[in-house]
Write a protein that binds this DNA or RNA. Structure first.
Length: 379
RNA sequence: GGGGGAAUUCCCGAGUGGCCAAAGGGGACAGACUGUAAAUCUGCUGUCUACGACUUCGGUGGUUCGAAUCCACCUUCCCCCA
């Protein structure tokens, strides 16, 4: 269920509820735990402490390991990872893009060579739905093709027409599985995904078509894959008027803090991105004053917390000098603390966005921070 | 006391006459990262008035058109025998 509480320009405040957890307040950032774990040694238990409302896991990866049947046997993803909040599963569509060298696309679906051992895997709309049903996530994503950038209009057209046909099959299979007596999560929702590369005409056509299929939410996929940032914003602007206003909107895989602020301003409700976790593991940390690379020599004897304006568990306790030391000494704690901080920052960013939307000061917030939060911290 | 071996750029370690400012690791320094094949990948690591020049391979002195590489002595370290 989704309810729009208020609209400021195009930006929306909303409430989302699903089979698990309480109310998800949107706009929201989904914390990414691809393999039922946040990389860097962060467990589902830690998610609460860093303000995570909803977690995201991956169909392809969990199908390969441990296997969705295993997860089903263990009672579903929520029990398996001991997270009782909402879980959205990505469909494997992104792996059609990221594992391009290892797959072949046909109308029926996609053949992959497992990146783990090379064995043959077939995944089409039905398989993706079955796996996500076994995982028991709260939101299943439609199986789509995330097209690489750049591409031709011809290919993008052919691809998003196929993705449309795949959504019809996803919807049918999803409804069938949800109705089975022993399904893991009968309340599982389905989100459709808009494609069309960087071509507004295809994007709009595709959005209009998938809106006719009754999904519980709609995502914009295939962006932030190498195109200029402004192109991404332009596509969102073009598609947004055609997205059902009463359904949640999810901008997949995005993005930087500024991308998120700009996405919210354009009417997006859900985001997810590996960036905060991956950058954290690589020592690049977000603060309200800009980014910093904690491994840099300048922090060797810096007694300040990562961000003096952050009240996350890491900033409350540890100095930059200590964090830097942990990185230089290859301690896994460096990864854990950094990931906790960056995810807290992202979750806090969303909270500030929601607060300023409620207070009517979002545009001030946007003007102050959009385009700024990725810049290197000033001395 | 006798015999043998070794000293290379921050570290380890290749290199035994020109293709050597010197392989390869490591470390240091810096950068990238957008629905995670990423605790990964990339660059850089003698000096400079920098597509060229200069100074380096324990020290000094030789041989040679040319030496990190050959010779002599010196210094330091390691191993074996007493």
């Amino acid at each position: 269920m989704f309810k729009v509480i208020s609209v400021t320009g195009h930006a929306r405040r909303g409430e989302f509820t699903c089979a698990h957890g309480g109310t998800v307040h949107t706009p929201v950032f989904m914390n990414v735990g691809t393999q039922a774990a946040i990389k860097g040694g962060v467990s589902a238990h830690d998610l609460k402490a860093i303000g995570c409302q909803i977690e995201l896991s991956n169909t392809y990866h969990l199908h390969l390991r441990p296997g969705d049947e295993v997860v089903r046997t263990m009672g579903g993803l929520h029990k398996f990872m001991d997270w009782d909040g909402p879980i959205l599963t990505d469909s494997g569509g992104f792996q059609v893009f990221s594992l391009a060298a290892l797959r072949k696309i046909k109308e029926e679906g996609v053949s992959f060579s497992s990146h783990l051992d090379g064995h043959h895997i077939f995944m089409g709309p039905e398989e993706s739905m079955q796996i996500q049903s076994n995982l028991g996530s709260d939101v299943a994503m439609a199986f789509d093709e995330c097209v690489e950038n750049p591409t031709t209009h011809d290919y993008a057209k052919q691809s998003c027409e196929r993705t449309y046909r795949w959504l019809e099959r996803c919807k049918q299979e999803h409804d069938r599985l949800n109705a089975l007596p022993d399904t893991v999560n009968p309340g599982q929702l389905l989100f459709g995904i808009n494609q069309g590369a960087t071509f507004p005409d295809l994007r709009i056509w595709h959005m209009q078509e998938i809106a006719k299929i009754d999904c519980d939410g709609y995502a914009i996929g295939g962006l932030a894959v190498g195109e200029e940032t402004q192109v991404m914003y332009d596509i969102i602007d073009a598609v947004e008027p055609y997205m059902p206003a009463d359904k949640p909107r999810y901008l997949m895989g995005v993005g930087t803090p500024s991308n998120i602020i700009e996405g919210v301003a354009r009417g997006v409700d859900f985001f997810d991105c590996v960036m905060p976790a991956r950058n954290a593991r690589h020592g690049k940390l977000f603060t309200w004053h800009g980014t910093l690379n904690i491994k840099n020599e300048r922090y060797q004897t810096d007694p300040l917390p990562l961000d003096p304006d952050c009240d996350c568990p890491v900033c409350r306790s540890f100095s930059r000098a200590y964090l830097r030391h942990l990185f230089k000494a290859d301690e896994v704690l460096a990864l854990r603390l950094s990931v906790l901080h960056n995810l807290y920052f992202y979750n806090q960013l969303m909270e500030r966005i929601r607060e300023t939307l409620d207070a009517g000061t979002f545009e001030t917030f946007r003007a102050r921070y959009s385009g700024k939060l990725e810049e290197r911290i000033a001395d």
